[in-house]
């Protein structure tokens, strides 16, 4: 495969989609995790539920991964033939498709982490509230999912 400017742009798109999602999830899970360790030290029996709450802001990273794979797949780089030719303009389009999931994942990951952290303190006080804590946290995730959706629609529209 000859590396052209267009292909470079595709790579940039995949990189934006995944790296921003990963970073957002990492920050978010960090917030939730530190709240979780504090609660676990007091009530170790809640560890399972706390782990679940901490895992919630991890979705953005996964959506980023899905996005990156889809971009590489649609561009024909994954599983494509040897002669993948991508013009600079098409490459730019691929770059753009990485932005919705990347940016939405980054910010929603961070904020979902904050909501998860408060959810963990909520569970610490009353563990039967876990369903509500999950719902509150999952509301934030909606926007990362929409990011993924738009990225996907942009890809199919090309």
């Amino acid at each position: 495969m000859e590396i052209t400017f267009g292909i470079g742009m595709v790579f940039a798109g995949a990189a934006i989609a995944s790296a921003l999602g990963f970073a957002g999830s990492a920050i978010g899970m960090g917030y939730a995790g530190s709240a979780g360790s504090a609660v676990t030290s007091e009530r170790p029996e809640l560890f399972g539920r706390i782990l679940l709450m901490q895992a919630l802001p991890g979705s953005q990273g996964i959506y980023g991964l899905v996005g990156a794979f889809l971009i590489l797949n649609f561009a024909g780089i994954l599983g494509g033939g040897e002669e993948t030719v991508i013009s600079s303009f098409t490459g730019l389009q691929f770059l753009m498709t990485g932005i919705p999931i990347g940016v939405a994942g980054f910010f929603s990951g961070i904020f979902q982490g904050m909501v998860s952290a408060s959810g963990i303190t909520m569970i610490a006080k009353d563990e039967t509230l876990i369903a509500r804590a999950i719902i509150l946290s999952a509301m934030v995730e909606t926007w990362a999912i929409f990011g993924l959706l738009i990225s996907f629609i942009l890809l199919t529209a090309m």
Partner: peptide, 20 residues
């Protein structure tokens, strides 16, 4: 419908985890 849509799209994690 927003809720249902995001519910369904959330299952895309199955693909991602398998790939990972």
């Amino acid at each position: 419908s927003v809720g249902y849509l995001s519910d369904v799209l959330s299952y895309s994690r199955l693909l991602a985890l398998g790939l990972a």
